[in-house]
Deep mutational scan, measured.
Amino acid sequence: MSIQHFRVALIPFFAAFCLPVFAHPETLVKVKDAEDQLGARVGYIELDLNSGKILESFRPEERFPMMSTFKVLLCGAVLSRVDAGQEQLGRRIHYSQNDLVEYSPVTEKHLTDGMTVRELCSAAITMSDNTAANLLLTTIGGPKELTAFLHNMGDHVTRLDRWEPELNEAIPNDERDTTMPAAMATTLRKLLTGELLTLASRQQLIDWMEADKVAGPLLRSALPAGWFIADKSGAGERGSRGIIAALGPDGKPSRIVVIYTTGSQATMDERNRQIAEIGASLIKHW
């Protein structure tokens, strides 16, 4: 067993022997301040990774656009098919120029040779490549099948209805392509620590998230040296922004954090800054 596999296998073990965790309302004060600064709703939840206990939450059962955070769930569904012998990570998928959609920095470079399922998941999570996500959605049967996968996990809230990039439209009061912070946090925890996926697939999923290259201005910008984070960000229309993450000190994750916002007129930089400040408060009061 590799060191990384050992780390993920012992996530519940280490967490069980940690000192009790206590909620700190100071972080919620910052979440509410972010709402004021952005002029928009902000949803927040913080779960203990081992027990699933909610440590703090704000608007945990209000719907927010998922945006690209759905790509972690998508690759979880792909990995479940791999575990069941219905898919192979090494299978190569070929596609054409007509398949390319807006923001496809990886797939646009491989029109000639195609990409493997493993490479597509890596591109979808680490670079948020939209064509990679659409190609992977095709392998599982489309958005409705991802929703069905989530329902089978016990998540009857999260739903995907459309493809990239239309799913980022974020129309107010439109339930399409949305989740709730509580539902997303619980589902992410199941994917990373539950028995739904094999140990190898859980490790692969967290490795992809740990290698995320496009979430630097968010929670990662607030992390002290030595902290662990595996995350996936999302951005959408109407001032929408979000991030889902597993993080913790001492090089291992111990909490799940989900943050979503929508309806702001603020710039992307300002949305990023507010999420980073929430992260800084979380870490300060850990």
Rank of each mutant, 00 (worst) to 15 (best):
I259Q: 01
L160V: 09
A170F: 02
L192Y: 05
L135N: 06
A245D: 00
S96F: 07
L199M: 15
E56R: 10
N130V: 01
S104E: 01
A245N: 01
T131Q: 10
I259H: 01
M180S: 06
K284F: 06
A211M: 15
E35H: 14
T261D: 15
I283V: 04
Q86S: 13
G242A: 05
A246C: 13
G226H: 11
G39P: 05
G142D: 07
A276R: 11
L205E: 14
T107K: 01
A40F: 11
A132R: 00
D231T: 11
A123Y: 02
Y44W: 10
S240F: 08
L137S: 12
G251D: 11
L199K: 12
L247W: 04
S80A: 12
R41K: 14
N98C: 09
K109N: 12
E210D: 15
T116E: 15
A40T: 08
L136P: 00
I229P: 00
R92V: 07
H156L: 10
L49P: 12
D207L: 09
A280E: 13
D269E: 06
A230N: 01
V257P: 00
I93M: 15
A245F: 09
V117A: 13
Y103K: 02
T179I: 03
R92M: 06
L197I: 05
S201E: 11
T179G: 01
R159F: 07
A280Y: 05
W163D: 10
S68D: 00
N98T: 08
S233K: 01
I256G: 07
A266R: 04
E169V: 03
S233W: 05
H24P: 02
A200N: 14
K30I: 10
L38H: 10
L196F: 10
A123G: 06
T126N: 08
K190W: 09
G251M: 09
K53D: 12
L167Q: 06
L167T: 10
N173A: 14
E46L: 15
Q97P: 08
L192P: 00
V29Q: 10
Y44I: 10
A276V: 13
G226K: 05
L167M: 07
L137A: 09
I93C: 15
N272Q: 13
P143G: 09
D129R: 00
T126R: 06
L137W: 12
T187W: 15
L247V: 05
S221Y: 04
Q86M: 03
M66W: 01
G52L: 07
L136S: 08
P249S: 12
G242F: 00
E56Y: 13
W163L: 05
K109C: 12
R189D: 03
A170C: 02
E26P: 12
V214A: 08
L199Y: 04
I229G: 10
P249G: 09
V101H: 03
T131V: 11
M115S: 05
K71I: 00
R41I: 11
I275V: 08
R162N: 14
E277N: 14
S96Y: 06
A276S: 09
E175R: 10
E102T: 04
L282D: 01
H151Y: 12
C75D: 01
E164P: 00
D250L: 02
D48K: 05
T139H: 03
T186P: 11
S96D: 13
Q204D: 06
G39S: 03
D207Y: 08
C121G: 09
D207Q: 02
D177A: 02
L197P: 06
L89T: 14
Q97S: 06
R238A: 09
P60G: 05
H110M: 09
A230V: 08
W286R: 05
V157M: 03
G85Q: 06
L49K: 06
S221P: 08
P25G: 07
E195W: 03
P224W: 02
E35D: 11
D129N: 01
T179F: 00
A215Y: 10
M153W: 02
E145W: 14
L28W: 02
D231Q: 15
E169H: 05
P172W: 11
V82R: 09
E210Q: 15
E145S: 14
H151Q: 12
Q265K: 06
K30H: 09
L219D: 15
E102M: 03
S104D: 06
E119M: 15
N272I: 09
C75H: 00
P60A: 10
R118K: 04
D36S: 09
R118A: 10
K144W: 03
I140L: 10
S128T: 01
P60N: 14
V214I: 03
G236M: 13
S264M: 03
L205S: 03
A280G: 14
T198F: 04
L160E: 09
H94C: 05
L196T: 12
A34G: 05
P224D: 06
T112S: 10
G76M: 07
H24M: 08
A170H: 03
H285Y: 06
P217A: 13
T193H: 08
K144N: 08
Q203D: 02
E56V: 09
E35G: 10
L38M: 05
V101D: 10
Q265E: 06
V72Y: 01
L28G: 06
G142R: 09
D161P: 00
A230L: 07
T158A: 07
D36Q: 02
L196H: 13
L136F: 01
M66N: 05
K71F: 00
T186M: 08
A148I: 14
S57T: 05
T131E: 05
R271S: 09
D269T: 06
D155G: 01
V31E: 01
G142S: 07
R176K: 06
L100I: 12
T147N: 03
K32M: 15
A211T: 15
L282N: 06
E35A: 10
R162T: 13
V258M: 02
V31K: 01
Q88C: 02
E166G: 14
K213I: 09
E35R: 06
W163R: 08
Q203M: 03
S80K: 15
K232G: 00
E56K: 09
R255E: 03
P172V: 08
R92T: 12
K32Y: 15
L47G: 13
E35I: 13
E166P: 13
H24E: 07
D83A: 05
V78R: 01
M67I: 08
K32C: 14
D36A: 04
A235R: 14
I45K: 01
K53N: 11
P181F: 00
P25C: 15
E26F: 14
A222M: 12
A235G: 14
R176P: 09
G52W: 04
S128P: 00
A132V: 01
M209V: 02
D48Y: 02
L247I: 15
G85W: 09
D113L: 03
E35C: 14
K30C: 13
M153A: 02
R241Q: 11
K53L: 13
F64L: 06
G141T: 11
T178S: 05
G90A: 14
K232M: 00
D33S: 02
I206C: 12
V117D: 01
L120I: 07
I54S: 11
V157Q: 10
A34D: 07
I243Y: 14
A132E: 00
K213F: 15
T186C: 11
G236S: 09
E56W: 02
L38C: 14
L38R: 12
P253L: 04
I243M: 15
G234P: 00
T187I: 15
N173H: 15
M67N: 13
A215F: 15
G39E: 06
E277W: 04
T178F: 14
A183K: 15
I229H: 07
K109S: 04
L219F: 06
L146K: 01
S96G: 12
P60D: 08
A34T: 05
Y103C: 11
S68Q: 00
